[in-house]
Design a protein around this nucleic acid. Structure first.
Lengths: 241, 241
DNA sequence: TTTCACTCTGGGGTTTCCCCCAGTTGATCC
DNA sequence: GGATCAACTGGGGGAAACCCCAGAGTGAAA
C-alpha cells in the first residue's frame, strides 16, 4: 500500500513521514515529491493508495495536482495538508473533487493524533475534514453569504486595484455590469452604503477587499495567479471548465 | 548558558530544541514558552543568554516580547525566527531593537545549517540576518521608496477600508491633509495616476493596498491590531512611544 | 410551466476621490 | 543663513465610484 507525500518544505515532509511510519503500521513504501508537478508524475507511475498534498507548492498547487491525479486515478485517497483555511481554497477544492471521492482536509496546526486519525479515515474509505474548516464550508454553501462566480470575479479585480472601466474591458462587460456585480458583492459582505448608517464610514471598494482578505475569500498567492491570467488576456477563470 | 525558546507551535519548538541540543554543544538547559507573555516572564526569571522568538504568538507578538525583554536585560541575544519576511515586521523590529544589541532574524524556511549558524553567531556576539531579509532592509532605508510614519498611517487606514473623511476624523486631520498623505503614498508606490499612462488602468487606492500586501508593508494580523486601536479612539500608533 | 435567482442593461442622479496649482510651517543639515 | 524636505492648508475642477430606479433575458429548479 503505497503512500505519496508532496510538500516543498523538507522539514514537513520528514515530519509527516515519521508520523506515518510510526502510527500507520500497515503502510508500505512512502515516496516524496517536492512540488505539484512531480507529485502528479509520481502518482500516475506509482498509483498510491493515498496522496498527501500541501497547497502552497511551486509549479503546481496541491489543489490542481489533486485535480489531475483524481482525473487519472479516481480511486486515490487525497489528503490536503495545509497551513491555510482560506475560503478560496475550499471553493476550489469542492469544484475539483468529484462528489464520491475520498478525501481529507487537515490544517498543519493539527495535533499529530488528528493527522493520524485523518489518514486512517481516508485509508478506510471515509472523509475527514478539519474542524476549523467546517465553519468555512458552511459559509460557502449558505446562499445569503456565499459569492457567485460573477461576484467573485469582480472581487478579484478590485482587489488587484483595477478601475471599473478596466475591469469591463478585461471581462468584456459594460461598466454598468461591473458596477452591478460590485453592488451585490457589497451587499453580501454587509458593507454599509452611503445612505445608511450615520456617517460615510467606509470606502466600500477597499472595505470589500479588506473583509475578503479576513474571511480568506482571497489571498496573496491566488491574486498573483489572477493577475497573470488577466494580463495575458485570458478571462473567466472560475467559469470555464 | 540558558536558552529560551518561544513558539506557539509545539512542533516547531521541539524541532528547534532538537537542533540546538545536537548542534550547539556548549548549551545548557533549554526552556520553552508557548506565548509572548510567558516568554517575557520566563526571560526575566531565567536571564537566558539567548532567546528565540516566533513572531506570530498569542497574547504578545515576538517583536513586542523582544522589546520588553531587551528593556529588562539588554545583554540578551535575541533571534526572531519567523515564517514572514514582511516589511512591516522589519520596520517594527528596527525601531524596537537598540542599535548595539545582538540579534538575528531567521526565516523558518531556512535550512538547519543556517539556523545553527545564526545561533552560533549570536552566541559569539555577532548579528545574523537572513539573506531574504536584507533586500527588505535595503528598501526600508531607501529614502525614495520607504514610507514615512504619516504615509504609513494613511496606508493602514485605506487598507481597512475607511473613507478620507473618516480617516481625517480619526487622526484629527483635515481631509486635505489625508489626501496629501495619500498622494505621496501613491507616488512612492509608483502607481500611475490619471493623467499619465494610456488609460485609467488603476484605482490607486485599491492598487496601493494590493501592492502593499505584496511587498509585506502590511498584512492581515497587523491590520487587525490597527483596527482595534482605531476603533478604540487611540491614534498615532507608529509615532507614539 | 411557472417560478426564482442571477445577470446585464439603461437613464439620471450625488459624492468621493484624485488632479492641478500655490503657500506656510517646522525640523534638519551644511 | 540658506537649502532641503516632510507635512498641512486652501481653491477649484474633472472623473470615477456609488445611488436610485426599472426592465429584460437566461437557466435551473419547483
Amino acid at each position: 500500500m503505497t503512500i505519496l507525500i508532496a510538500d516543498d518544505e523538507e522539514r514537513d515532509r520528514s515530519w509527516l513521514k515519521d508520523l506515518l511510519v510510526k502510527n500507520v503500521p500497515e503502510e508500505g513504501p512512502i515516496h516524496e515529491a517536492s512540488d505539484g508537478q512531480a507529485a502528479v508524475e509520481m502518482a500516475v507511475k506509482l498509483k498510491p493508495k493515498l496522496v498527501c498534498l500541501d497547497i502552497k507548492m511551486p509549479h503546481l498547487s496541491g489543489i490542481k495536482a489533486a485535480e489531475q491525479i483524481l482525473a487519472e486515478l479516481p480511486r486515490t485517497g487525497v489528503i490536503i495538508l495545509s497551513n491555510f483555511s482560506d475560503e478560496v481554497y475550499v471553493r476550489q477544492l469542492w469544484k475539483v473533487v468529484p462528489g464520491d471521492s475520498v478525501f481529507g482536509y487537515v490544517l498543519k496546526s493539527a495535533s499529530n493524533e488528528q493527522v493520524v486519525e485523518a489518514v486512517r479515515a481516508i485509508l478506510s474509505g471515509d472523509c475527514w475534514i478539519h474542524p476549523g474548516i467546517s465553519r468555512v464550508i458552511q459559509r460557502t454553501q449558505n446562499r445569503a453569504t456565499s459569492l457567485t462566480a460573477a461576484e467573485f470575479e469582480a472581487l478579484v479585480c478590485i482587489a488587484l486595484g483595477l478601475t471599473d472601466s478596466s475591469i469591463a474591458r478585461r471581462l468584456y462587460l459594460t461598466e454598468k455590469a461591473v458596477q452591478s456585480r460590485l453592488k451585490s458583492l457589497y451587499s453580501k459582505l454587509a458593507i454599509p452604503g452611503r445612505g445608511e448608517q450615520q456617517d460615510t464610514e467606509y470606502n466600500q471598494r477597499c472595505r470589500a477587499v479588506y473583509l475578503s482578505y479576513r474571511r480568506g475569500l482571497i489571498n496573496q498567492s491566488e491574486l498573483d495567479d489572477w493577475e497573470q491570467k488577466l494580463f495575458d488576456g485570458k478571462v473567466g477563470g472560475e467559469k470555464q471548465q
